[in-house]
């Protein structure tokens, strides 16, 4: 190496090498993003006047949230909340129960190809459409009420839970699975002793997380007629009873906080 050279031989400036090395690609990405943002903003068609008009209305709207009215005369708020909770519980339980065989089937290291493809197809189908679209169809088929919401949330749970379960199984340690297989265990024993202990803690955490999601989603399936607190919330909005709406939102936030706290504790306890 050139050890005894004078200082002047070393460069006096240095630039961080760019993240994208090919300069044509870098510049086309930068220019492309700028053009897209301009086009998107233009097509937003922001009507400044409408927004300005809306601001005082927004202020009145927010003011009418206070004070939140928890003691509504008809008791519908608490009824709605309870219905949402029951809906969330039952759809989580049913959804998770249905997810287990589908998740096992969607793990490439457990299932033969045709089972794998079928299960992956079911998962992809239920993941693509938001719960609310599922709820619209469920309401069409099963009529208004919590049953439709329950069906929609259960289907949504399958897409979420089965996918994560399958991925977790695929990532589980093959060494442990091999060791149990080597003892001559049959398929069910193998699942029970080699796979279940590896994925169980995370799955319990995820179930509670999904319960949390289902509770929050139950607040919107009601908007399209799927029962629960969403129906109450929608009624409150359409009757301009914003203080009741505020109370409902605060209750939702509180319950979500409790669930989150509970799930973090449960996860620590399980592991």
């Amino acid at each position: 190496m050139m050890n005894n050279v004078s200082e002047t031989l070393y460069p006096k400036s240095w630039k961080k090498p760019p993240f994208i090395k090919r300069s044509w690609l870098r510049w086309s990405i930068i220019i492309g993003s700028i053009l897209y943002l301009i086009a998107a903003l233009l097509s937003m068609d922001i009507n400044i006047q409408r927004v300005l008009e809306g601001l005082p209305r927004g202020q009145r709207f927010i003011e009418s949230f206070f004070p939140p009215n928890f003691s509504d005369n008809r008791g519908v708020v608490w009824e709605g909340i309870l219905e949402s909770i029951w809906m969330a519980i039952i759809s989580t339980v049913v959804g998770v129960a249905l997810s287990i065989p589908i998740g096992l089937g969607a793990a490439r290291n457990l299932a033969p190809l045709w089972v794998y493809m079928t299960c992956r197809f079911i998962i992809a189908g239920s993941r693509t459409f938001p719960e609310i679209i599922l709820a619209i169809f469920a309401v069409k088929l099963f009529g208004f009420g919590p049953f439709a919401g329950f069906i929609a949330l259960s289907l949504g749970t399958i897409g979420f839970f089965a996918k994560l379960l399958a991925e977790d199984i695929e990532n589980s340690s093959p060494a442990q699975a091999e060791a149990v297989k080597a003892t001559g265990a049959n398929w069910f024993q193998w699942i029970n002793y080699a796979i279940q202990p590896q994925v169980m803690p995370r799955m319990i955490g995820l179930s509670v997380y999904r319960l949390d999601i289902n509770f929050r989603e139950s607040a919107v399936v009601g908007i399209v007629g799927g029962g629960g607190i969403g129906a109450t919330l929608n009624t409150a909005f359409s009757r301009y009873e914003f203080d009741t709406a505020a109370a409902i939102l605060l209750i939702i936030i509180a319950i979500v906080m409790v669930l989150e706290y509970a799930s973090s504790h449960l996860r620590k306890w399980v592991q």
Partner: peptide
């Protein structure tokens, strides 16, 4: 913005060379 004075950059290259890592700068 990674705009260090020229003297610092020069010194950095010199030190990297001293420990035999001049080619690794980037």
């Amino acid at each position: 913005f990674r705009k260090f004075p020229k003297r610092d950059v020069n010194e950095a290259f010199r030190l990297l060379d001293r420990v035999g890592l001049l080619e690794m700068a980037d």
